[in-house]
Write a protein that binds this DNA or RNA. Structure first.
Lengths: 163, 163
DNA sequence: CAATGTTATATATCAAGTTATAGACTTATG
DNA sequence: CATAAGTCTATAACTTGATATATAACATTG
């Protein structure tokens, strides 16, 4: 069966990148599920942002993640519910709400940085290894490789190779 | 403000590709809005699939687009509502419902192929022109270029260059 | 050939993004 | 200094993807 998005090339590049991104996220989720993590893969970037940049107001968090503010408001509400982040009003400006990692969130991030993220990063790096040339060709190669060996298998192998 | 997804590299490649895809779709939508098209940019791949492959049952349509079947069922219902596709039960197998372009759908696709898609394709090709090297670098270049000159501006220019 | 299993589609629910807008607070100005 | 304008966050409504499951039609088999 012809892959129409691939055939259409640049015309549907947006749909195609979205599709690849979704598959990567879903595969990553599988890896996390096996490790008994209780949050969605899509929440990690927010936690990583707080880890890298320290406490941030909602708007700057959205900007640093490159998403719209309401999405961050919702994610923050969810993570606060789980006890992974804390939200405090800013002292200088009562409109701003400063988001920071809670103790549990700190622990989760530290564990992820040590035990989980390296494996995922290696798996994705493996997936993209030795790619070069035009973008569309690289995307096709990624799709083919993912179909041949899903990410969670690569994560296992990668973990063996990089202890 | 640091772009966290970019800093995290392979670890968040899925989120990042999704983000780029969404921006491309949104920008494409802007181009279409200006041209008074009444459907969403995300529906075009389905119409293009029917155009390329002819009438197809729902499942094969999903497969050719690389998305899950319920998404196609929903899109088809929407496009049928708009009168752009028709759905008929298969004769051999009463479970299958064959989707095809209606007369209006045919006309829309023909018009799009003639007047609209080339401009979009050129704009995206322009966006990706002269890219080479590692994937992450190309993605960063695309993000930078999109930020500098949004797609709808490129579409205008591309149309002038390629009559 | 009835019962069981399989397949195709529809439906329900969820997730995570979007835009538009409202409400609270801050800043600027006449 | 009161009011107007602006900024920050939350909420509502929508989009578009996903998975899980129900239903209906077909296929197989004891």
């Amino acid at each position: 069966m012809e892959d129409v998005l691939r055939s259409l090339g640049f015309l549907c590049l947006g749909s195609r990148m979205k599709r690849i991104g979704e598959q990567l996220q879903a595969d990553t989720q599988r890896v996390l599920d096996r490790l008994d993590m209780r949050i969605q893969s899509s929440q990690y970037p927010l936690l990583a942002a707080l880890d890298r940049l320290g406490p941030l107001p909602v708007g700057e968090l959205a900007q640093s993640l490159g998403v719209a503010q309401p999405g961050v408001t919702r994610s923050v509400a969810l993570l606060a519910e789980l006890g992974l982040v804390e939200v405090n009003p800013s002292e200088e400006d009562q409109r701003r709400r400063i988001v920071s990692l809670s103790r549990d969130g700190r622990r989760l991030v530290d564990q992820a940085k040590r035990d989980i993220w390296p494996g995922i990063e290696n798996a994705v790096a493996d997936l993209c290894a030795d790619l070069s040339g035009p973008l569309l060709g690289q995307l096709a190669a990624i799709e083919d490789r993912l179909a041949a060996t899903p990410l969670h298998r690569r994560a296992e192998n990668a973990r063996v190779v990089a202890p």
